[in-house]
Amino acid sequence: MIINNLKLIREKKKISQSELAALLESSRQTINGIEKNKYNPSLQLALKIAYYLNTPLEDIFQWQ
Score class of each variant (00 low, 15 high):
M1V: 09
I3W: 06
N4R: 01
N5A: 05
N5G: 03
L6G: 03
L6K: 01
L6P: 03
L6N: 03
L6F: 00
K7I: 07
K7Q: 12
L8W: 08
I9V: 12
I9P: 01
R10L: 09
R10W: 07
E11N: 09
K12G: 12
K12L: 13
K13M: 15
K13L: 14
K13Y: 10
K13S: 09
K13Q: 13
K14T: 05
K14I: 04
S16D: 04
Q17A: 07
S18A: 13
S18N: 13
E19H: 12
E19N: 10
E19A: 14
A21R: 02
A21C: 04
A22R: 14
A22L: 12
A22K: 14
L23F: 12
L23W: 13
L24P: 00
E25R: 14
E25N: 15
E25T: 09
S26N: 07
S26D: 08
S26A: 13
S26Y: 09
S27D: 15
S27Q: 06
R28I: 15
Q29M: 11
I31H: 02
I31T: 01
N32A: 15
G33W: 14
I34C: 03
I34A: 02
I34S: 02
I34F: 04
E35N: 01
E35T: 02
E35R: 02
E35G: 02
K36L: 14
K36W: 07
K36Q: 14
N37T: 03
N37S: 10
K38Q: 14
Y39A: 09
Y39F: 14
P41Q: 02
S42M: 04
L43G: 04
Q44L: 09
L45G: 00
L47T: 11
K48I: 05
K48G: 06
K48D: 07
I49Y: 00
Y52Q: 08
Y52P: 00
L53Q: 00
N54G: 11
N54M: 10
T55C: 07
T55H: 07
P56M: 07
P56W: 06
P56V: 07
L57E: 01
L57Q: 02
L57W: 04
E58V: 09
E58D: 13
E58K: 12
E58W: 10
D59V: 08
I60T: 01
I60P: 01
I60M: 05
I60C: 03
F61K: 01
F61L: 02
F61V: 00
Q62T: 09
Q64P: 14
